[in-house]
Each structure stands twice: as structure tokens, then as C-alpha cells.
Design a protein around this nucleic acid. Structure first.
Lengths: 234, 234
DNA sequence: CGACCGTTTGAAAGGCATCAAGGCCAGTGG
DNA sequence: CCACTGGCCTTGATGCCTTTCAAACGGTCG
């Protein structure tokens, strides 16, 4: 078991969190879970590998990614604390999953979770909600890719990160490098860097070091991200 | 009920297919369904509208789409016979749905379907599978958008259509116009037209009229779609 | 301190969009 | 019956945004 974790890099099983040890917020206390700690750039599972486990991020960050023959890479999404990974796969993973930085996660058996979902409607409901959220996120991203410029993509990304990991005063630390952002947005590292510099020049954001971001003009940023069309009201 | 269907264009309710009338392949014989016939360009539901109904396409084609403030449009996906629409929404539709051409569909109550899924594990399973399939399709599309050239996108699209509606000898009729394809692939109508002409010049496809396509060199086309092979080079 | 890796910045190239015009087909009305 | 008209499609010329190529910068860790 955990075969996909044994190759190359080491991923340490820190402890077991079974039914008895169910602490604060284990989402499925009925089934066993491992706490896993993985180092930067460790592969959680490979592209195309069978789906044996499902994970929830506790701390750190994970990227799902896919490679094209000639080396082009696309990042599917970034899983941050609280997010799930691996639930989308029917039988095999379409994207690989790798730790962006040192990451701690909860690991469940896919088989046990499926069994639980068959008998426990609330578990099925939770799975369904995670799937729906993932689908909604994917659809937002499709819009972004299809019709947005580099600057609009950058603004959308920053707005998303702001919503997901800001401290309340618009400050957050990006867990990923420029190259990861580029492969997430379908751009190059150079363009990502240029857009960030441009945003800093316009006083929309402030950068401390390379990873620390502060949102200065959220309204302008969100206007730029282009999503103002909810013509429906009811 | 069916409030989203009453605006402007007319969508006729042709009949009722309840439990008793469950003919060949109603997926949920336990709950009632309407058979709906909608004309070209009729809106099934609006962007941001509450999700009251779920549909399965019987014939024709439906596009889901979203507009940006300045008129830019993105098509989420094309639903062809057998495909589901509206199941992805948690409470509100992120994308609008419109008939690409005259379309017949089966219409279910969202509320009844949810209730059924709570008591009937097989129904929940079916919903989950539809969601997973949708998520997988969305993730393939994200890869396409992020890292593929215009020609690779066109090839991917044709390969997809070939798989979904070809007659067995690589012949199929596109239900949608060039503009729809463009908004689906994140290109312009001009570029779509140019790519098709280029493919015809290279004898990868044959066109009869504007909508009828025949795949001549499937291997080359699939190679071009980028999953495996090097980049397209003129 | 110095090498390395990620980041930033600049200059040039390329691919797709934009602008523009002409062709084809179906539906319409004289 | 046929010219007319409008929508959709195709093709060409030009421009712009992003990529590509290249080099310098800065922080980190031996």
C-alpha cells in the first residue's frame, strides 16, 4: 500500500488517526486515516496511476500537474490547507500530485471511503460537494484560460490566493515559485514576473521578497480579473 | 416552474414520462420527467440562475456559456445526446445553457433527484459518476487551454467530436457554427476557419459543406492533439 | 566568499487577433 | 423564377501581446 509514495523521495507516516483518535476535525471519523508528511517536490501519486488513496491537506501546499511529450507542463490546481486531492479520479489519476513545499496531509483509503459513501448518505453528500466545488473551480479556470489576457489571469490568481490564504489585511505568502504560477496560468515565468512588476509599479500590490504579497488595491484588481457580469438577480 | 424557459423563445413540453411510462432508457424511472423540445438559440437556463432542473440531451446539442463584461464569450462544453446538463450546479448555474440547434431533452426536478440520491445509493452513484466525468473533461480542457497551440486545440476538438458522434467511418456532422467552436476553444472564428483549411490542405480531414467532416488521418490528428508527441511545426 | 537557483529585465521573434473584403448558401419577396 | 439580402464562412494584410532568447541581479547555502 501507498506504493505511489515509495518511489525516490521519502514520505514519512507520522501517526495513525483512527476512529478512537479522532481529534478536532477528521472529516470521516468512521474510517482510519494516516497523517503524512512529505518533502518539497515529492510525488504523492503519478499521472495515470490507479487511485488508491484520497488526501486532505493540513498544512503546506500540493500541485496537481500533467506533462506533454515535449516537456510543456500544466498545473491543474493548487491544494491548500483544507482542500482535497484525489477525489476526482474515477479509477486512475489524470494529473500527478506533488508537494509544492513541505506538506502535512491526512490520507484515507479510497476503497474504504467508497464503501462508507455507499452506506452513509452524509459521507456521499460530502464527496458530492467536494466534486461540485472542484467542477465549479475548473469551470472558472476554463473561462480564465479561454478569454483572459496575461494581466487578467494574474489578477484572478492573486484575488484567488487572497481569498484563500490572506491574513485579513490582504497579506499572504505564496507557497509556490514563479514557474509554478506560470504553469498554472498557462504563461511563462518571464511573463508572470513582468505582470507582478507591472502591478507593483501601479501600486495594486506590494512585494516583500519574492513570496510575500500584500494587496493594496483590491477593487482595481478584481475589476481587472474581469468577472463582473452576473446579469441575473433573484 | 420552468421559469427559466418562459422568457422569449418557446420551449414546448411534449409529454410526460413518469414512472409508469418509463420506456427504453430513462435513467431515473422512480421520478417524473418531461420531454422538452427547444428551438435553436433558446436559453435553457441563465447564468447565475437557481438550479431547479437537470436535463439529459436526447437529440440535438446544447452549449453552456458565460459572458464577460466586454462581450467576450466562453463556451464551457457541448452536451450531445446522452450527456447531462445542470448537474454540476450546487445551487446556482455558473454557466448559461442554450440550444445549439433544435434539441430534445429529458427534464428532471433537481429537488426530486437530490431526494432520490439520499435514499437510493445507485442514484447517488450515478450522480457521482456524472460529476467525475465532468471533472475529468474539465481537467483535460484546462490542459488544452494552458499549453496548446491553435492547431493542437483544433485537432483535440476534432478528435473529441470524432469519438462522440462519428458514424464509425470517421464521418460526422458538426452541430455548431464556427463561432461556437471558436468560443469553445478560446480562439476566433477566423483562426478556426484557417486551421480547418490547413488540415484539409494536409489531407488530415475532408469537408463537405461547412458542417460535414470526415477524418482521413486519425493517427496524425491525434498525434497533433499533443497528448504524446512533439509540437506541431509548419 | 562564491556558486547556484530563482527572479527580473531587455530585445527580438512569432503566433494569434483584429481589421477588412469577398464568397457561398438559404430564405424572402418582387 | 430570380435578384436581393443577410448570415456565415473563408482568405488576406497588418498589428499587438506573449514567447523566446539572453543576460544581469539577488538571496541562500555550502
Amino acid at each position: 500500500m501507498l506504493a505511489s509514495l515509495t518511489s525516490g523521495n521519502h514520505a514519512a507516516v507520522l501517526g495513525r488517526a483512527g476512529f478512537a483518535a479522532a481529534h478536532n476535525a477528521t472529516p470521516f471519523p468512521q474510517i482510519a486515516s494516516h497523517v503524512l508528511r512529505v518533502a518539497r517536490d515529492t510525488e504523492l501519486y503519478a499521472e495515470g496511476s490507479p487511485s488508491h488513496h484520497v488526501y486532505q491537506v493540513l498544512s503546506g501546499a500540493v500541485r496537481t500537474c500533467k506533462l506533454l511529450g515535449d516537456g510543456r507542463r500544466q498545473i491543474g490546481f493548487f491544494a491548500l490547507p483544507g482542500d482535497w486531492i484525489g477525489l476526482d479520479a474515477a479509477t486512475r489519476h489524470l494529473y500527478a500530485a506533488e508537494a509544492v513545499k513541505t506538506t502535512v496531509l491526512l490520507c484515507f483509503s479510497r476503497r474504504e471511503l467508497d464503501a462508507l459513501a455507499r452506506t452513509e448518505p452524509t459521507a456521499a453528500q460530502l464527496v458530492q460537494n467536494v466534486l461540485r466545488e472542484g467542477l465549479a473551480a475548473a469551470e472558472r479556470r476554463i473561462l480564465m484560460f479561454g478569454r483572459k489576457t496575461a494581466m487578467e489571469r494574474m489578477a484572478s490568481f492573486l484575488a484567488d490566493m487572497d481569498a484563500r490564504l490572506a491574513d485579513g489585511r490582504g497579506c499572504f505568502t505564496l507557497p509556490m515559485a514563479r514557474g509554478d504560477i506560470a504553469d498554472y496560468l498557462g504563461l511563462t515565468t518571464e511573463t508572470v514576473s513582468r505582470m507582478l512588476s507591472e502591478l507593483r509599479r501601479r501600486r495594486a500590490i506590494a512585494l516583500e521578497g519574492t513570496q510575500s504579497v500584500r494587496i493594496l488595491d483590491r477593487a482595481w484588481l478584481e475589476g481587472l480579473s474581469g468577472e463582473e457580469t452576473p446579469r441575473y438577480s433573484a
